[in-house]
Design a protein around this nucleic acid. Sequence first.
DNA 1: TGTACATCAGTGAACGCGCGTTCACTGATGTAC
DNA 2: TGTACATCAGTGAACGCGCGTTCACTGATGTAC
Lengths: 216, 216
Amino acid sequence: MNEDGTPIGTVRRPNPRGQGDRLRAEILAAVARLLDQKLTDNPLPVSLREVAREVGIAAQSMYLHFSDKNELARAVAEDGFKRTVAAMAAADAEAAEAGADPGERLRVQANAFCAFARDERGVFRLMFGHDASSFDVPDRAHPAHHLWHQWVGAVRACETDGLSWPDGIERTALLLWSALVGRFALWSSTFGNHDPVELAAFADHMVETVLRGARH
Amino acid sequence: MNEDGTPIGTVRRPNPRGQGDRLRAEILAAVARLLDQKLTDNPLPVSLREVAREVGIAAQSMYLHFSDKNELARAVAEDGFKRTVAAMAAADAEAAEAGADPGERLRVQANAFCAFARDERGVFRLMFGHDASSFDVPDRAHPAHHLWHQWVGAVRACETDGLSWPDGIERTALLLWSALVGRFALWSSTFGNHDPVELAAFADHMVETVLRGARH
DNA sequence: TGTACATCAGTGAACGCGCGTTCACTGATGTAC
DNA sequence: TGTACATCAGTGAACGCGCGTTCACTGATGTAC
């Protein structure tokens, strides 16, 4: 074997002249296959040593708090979910104090969610960017569980207030949540100027659309 | 300086007894900061050498087709966008041939989009998972541009057919696209059993909701 | 028709580097007797 | 009150490894004259 594991001495039969591009297509297909396999891998695109440098400690000191790199990634994501829920709950409480109705409270929570995504893009991507199984927890205990309940609760409050949706509370909550997650992904990955206003406007528009779909 | 760049001889003043957890919080904050900085970095979570091994060539042969690793990532994503558009267009054409109305054609395209996401999860994540600026192209030439047009066209066809949306074509297309991207992110990252049927059902439901929001 | 040369599609060997992790250690602070 | 010891919050030094990239090379195929 060669040092990289390929069988020694095997030399790829070159493609016919003028068809070197075949290899290019083979490479693209191989990347796609490998990316699929890597989906549940360690998702932290930052090295332990970089983190240690940023904090100003020795790299080994990471192991005082996290058993390995994966555990660190898990902790960062879990912390992110907690802070997201906390931000939404705080926005809800503030609006409630100001006498807002449930629709308005849903709106401020949607905005809080988007604000967290915008302000903590790196963590947010970690939270929603890879496979749940890499956390090795059952769904019930998944750190996103509370966030889901926060959404359902916010929508249910509207129903309690007299609104009702033909598709039910959970479907409505999931639609709203999905739309915001997706819009943020598009906002930050492919389109536009990354204007925060655009994102907030979408959140407002989305809540309005959802409320419009309800019956009194 | 030490080998890792930290100033030599500086030893972190240990936290007071019983407060070792402070460091943990500092670490989490540092990771969040670093993740933000890394957003536009090379997004390919696979090494050139792995790809070469998978293809069965020497690692250096990658450079016959891609000037560096980033160029490879760009090519994979671009290919992904093209194939997504092609899959939607094919579904649309097939439905049209079968005499489907524009609403039904929108539905099959939404399903084709979800099917691509499901079947090519790795590539899909590359397409929507990182900053556009890492592609170094103006928006107009961004490989997602055609995909956006595909969505707008599919919605516009419904309007041509007599439907109209209070929010306009583009907003409607963006809502639909966002919802599907987000639902897929949730489907693949946090919730559930990864049941393909669930994803397809959401796509159907989403199109139905959008059509319901239109006037004749 | 023969032959010198150019081109193409790759490989061999090596480079310096940063990575995750382990092991043994330090030195300040608290605690039992 | 003194002192031996345990605990805590870290560091020093090193390991083997795979990485992205570069440079010089090969050997088959086509082409000009």
